[in-house]
Simulated scan of single mutants.
Amino acid sequence: MTVRKAERLLNLIAFLLETDRLITPQQIQDTVPGYAEQSWEAFKRMFERDKEALREVGIPLEVAPVALLGEPEEGYRIPKDRYYLPELDLAAEELASLWLAAGLVRLQDPTAARTALLKLAGELPPEVERARLSWLSADLGLAVPGLPRAFEAVAERRTISFEYRGRSGAQTRTLDPYGLVHRKGTWYLVGRDHDRGENRSFRLDRVSGELRFRNKGGPGADFDAPEGFRPQEALEVPPFVGRPEAPLKAPDKEPEAPLKAPDKEKGSPAVDALVRFDASTAWWIERTHPWLRLTWGSDGDASARVPVSDNAGFVSWLLSLGEGVELVEPEALRGEVLARLEEICDGVPPEPEPEPELGAEHG
């Protein structure tokens, strides 16, 4: 009966793993099923191939000289301390993170990855219950058909075009994808919109059909993302912040008409505001407003420049921050902030005067 290679290798591993001494080739041929029916020369060739197969998959095969009755020869064994994994001793936070990561693995059996994780984890930390882990999940939005293609476009910096269902109906858009952002179960593709000439974000679940690469591929990328660009900012920046225009490229020939300055309606910033935050507020601003590029002072204070395209929205945001915030410039926008404060104060009814105390009656 012929023993298949996979079965023969498993038998070899089990034999060399369970022994505490070095095993000679002759003992291996006599003991491991699959070798005994081979001639000595055929066995040696087969054994050499099997040793190489074990080494390729990372199994530590120890080789050392052993002397029995005759001349010393090579002996083999697999040391248990190098073959078996040590205890992982996972903390509760590490186990929870791996549990969520296992949800990304798409297998025919959706529980296979997490079952393997529990086997690797061994005894769970005292603060983690096995039943509680089954409730730990995240909406990763993996069912979006265009996600693999979008990831490929971002990783390889490939310009893409696609049909997009926006508020004004379906349109063909061309994009240099700078990054992918996941937010509350939805994937957003962020990059330079060729049709609008500015950075935009697109929901992948509103893309109709496939994402198409503009070029068929080849050496080099189609574009370079701006230095320091953070895709998540495209979703976090409030609407009153203007979109800075991209630098204009020099044309190949003289244009027929002079280039005009961009209109405000197309998203260019109206004013450049300088806002200062004192030390009691700057730390909170850093955590809650990641889209702001803060410049830190020596006393823990910070400042940031904001390109404002909607003055009223900016003033409302600034006043909502409370104390510890100052608009340094421009002066015209400072005037709007003061005017808004006066409106608020005028709209607050005055406190009622206290009623006079009634004096005691005298007889």
Rank of each mutant, 00 (worst) to 15 (best):
R4N: 13
L22Y: 10
I28C: 05
K44H: 08
F47I: 09
E48P: 00
R77W: 01
W99N: 04
G103R: 12
V105L: 15
P110D: 15
T111W: 05
L117Y: 13
A121H: 03
E123H: 09
P126T: 12
V128N: 04
R130F: 05
S137C: 02
G141D: 03
A150S: 00
A150R: 00
E156P: 00
T159Y: 01
I160W: 00
F162C: 00
L180S: 14
S201Q: 07
V207Y: 00
L211G: 00
F213S: 13
R214Y: 02
P219K: 14
P219R: 15
P219C: 08
G220K: 11
A225D: 02
P226T: 05
E227L: 08
G228L: 04
E233T: 04
P239A: 14
P239L: 04
E245P: 03
P247H: 01
P247A: 06
K249N: 01
D252W: 05
P258C: 10
P258S: 07
K260V: 02
A261Y: 03
D263W: 01
S268H: 02
P269W: 01
V271I: 02
V271P: 02
A273C: 13
L274S: 07
R276P: 05
S280Y: 11
R287V: 13
T288Q: 15
T295H: 10
G300W: 09
V306G: 00
V308C: 02
A312I: 03
L318M: 11
G324H: 03
V325R: 08
E331K: 15
E343R: 14
P352R: 07
E353W: 11
